[in-house]
C-alpha cells in the first residue's frame, strides 16, 4: 500500500547549514508515527517540506500520492502547527474557512464544525485571536480535523493543554488511527508519544538516528533483565546486581549469557523470578540518542 507521506533522501540546506540530511521516512496508512528529536534537530523543517512551505535542496517526496507541494493533495491533509495563528474572526468561522478552502460541501460544513467544536470543548468567541493558548490549540486541532483528513500532521499538539484536554486529544488520535487515518506526530511530551505512537523516528542534527516500532526500541534486545531471590550479590561475582526491596536482586546481563547466568543462580541456591529483555523509558532513549552523532 502506498505511504501517506514519504521522504526519499530529502535534504534541506539553509545557506551553509544542512538542516536535513538525506531523510528517508514513510508514514504508513493507519499508523501513528512519533517524530522526536532535540530542538533544532530538523523536525519542523521536515514538516514544512511535507507541507510544501519549503522546497527541498535535494531528494524528493510524496504526500498522499502526489509530489510534495501539490495543493490538491492537501485537501486530504490536516495540519496543526506548534503555535496556530488565526484571522480576526469567530472560532466557528476559522474552522469553516478551512473546510471551504479544502472544497467541502456547504451542506456538510455547519454540522461538522458544530460537532468538532463541541467535542473539543472550544469556547465560542467573536475573535479567535483572543483565546487562551490552550484553547487556540484546541481550535487549531478542530481546524485540522474538519476535512476528516487521511493524514494528520501535528507539531506539538498537546504542549499547551491541560491534563483533561491531553487525554481528550489522545482519545481523538487513537480513534482517528483506528478509523484508518495516519498521524505524523512531533512532540517533546514523551509520555504522550509512548502512549499513542506505533513507531518512532528520532532525528538529530538533521539525520535520522533511529526508526522502529515503539516496543522494539524500548526493549533492548542486547541486554536481559533477570530478577532473582535467595542469593546475595557476593555470590554473583562479576555481575552487576541491584538490590530490590524484599531481598530480590535485579541483574543486567547480555542476552547471550542469560542461560549461563541462570544456571549459576540455581547452582548457588537462588530462585529465578523473571527474565525479560531490558526495558528502557523513552526519556532514557531520548537522552542516549541525543548524544549520538
Amino acid at each position: 500500500m502506498a505511504a501517506r507521506l514519504e521522504f526519499d533522501r530529502i535534504s534541506k540546506r539553509f545557506g551553509s547549514k544542512l538542516a536535513l540530511d538525506s531523510l528517508c521516512l514513510r508514514v504508513e496508512p493507519g499508523e501513528i508515527l512519533g517524530f522526536l528529536g532535540p530542538n533544532g534537530a530538523g523536525k519542523t523543517t521536515a514538516i514544512h517540506l511535507a507541507l510544501g512551505f519549503l522546497k527541498a535542496s535535494a531528494g524528493s517526496g510524496t504526500l498522499l500520492g502526489s509530489p510534495l507541494g501539490t495543493a490538491s493533495a492537501r485537501a486530504r491533509l490536516g495540519y496543526l502547527p506548534d503555535a496556530p495563528a488565526f484571522f480576526a474572526s469567530s472560532t466557528a468561522f476559522q474552522v469553516e474557512l478551512a473546510a471551504r478552502l479544502n472544497g467541502m460541501r456547504s451542506s456538510e460544513i455547519k454540522g461538522r464544525v458544530r460537532q468538532l467544536l463541541s467535542r473539543l470543548g472550544v469556547e465560542s468567541v467573536k475573535d479567535a485571536r483572543k483565546l487562551s493558548r490552550g484553547m487556540q490549540q484546541r481550535l487549531g486541532l478542530a481546524r485540522a480535523l474538519v476535512n476528516e483528513p487521511e493524514l494528520l500532521i501535528l507539531d506539538e499538539p498537546t504542549s499547551a493543554l491541560d491534563p483533561s484536554a491531553v487525554s481528550q486529544v489522545r482519545e481523538l488520535l487513537l480513534a482517528a488511527r483506528n478509523a484508518g487515518h495516519s498521524i505524523f506526530f512531533s512532540s517533546h511530551q514523551l509520555s504522550e508519544v509512548e502512549q499513542v505512537c506505533d513507531r518512532i523516528a528520532f532525528l538529530n542534527h538533521g539525520r535520522l538516528v533511529k526508526l522502529g516500532s515503539l516496543s522494539e526500541l524500548l526493549h533492548d534486545q542486547a541486554l536481559a533483565e533477570v530478577v532473582v531471590r535467595g542469593v546475595t550479590a557476593g555470590q554473583l561475582d562479576g555481575l552487576f546486581a541491584e538490590v530490590l526491596p524484599g531481598g530480590q536482586l535485579r541483574i543486567l546481563i547480555p542476552q547471550a549469557r542469560q542461560r549461563e547466568v541462570i544456571e549459576r543462580i540455581w547452582m548457588a541456591g537462588g530462585e529465578l523470578i523473571s527474565t525479560a529483555p531490558r526495558r528502557r523509558t523513552l526519556e532514557q532513549l531520548f537522552a542516549e540518542w541525543s548524544r549520538e552523532l
Binding site: 507541507l51 512551505f53 492537501r74 495540519y79 502547527p81 478552502l101
Partner: peptide, 17 residues
C-alpha cells in the same frame, strides 16, 4: 511574520491562488 500564511497554505490552496 504572523504565520497566518501557514494556516492558509496548509489547506488545498496553491501559491498562485
Amino acid at each position: 511574520r504572523s504565520r497566518r500564511i501557514a494556516t492558509v497554505l496548509a489547506e488545498a490552496v496553491s501559491r498562485g491562488e
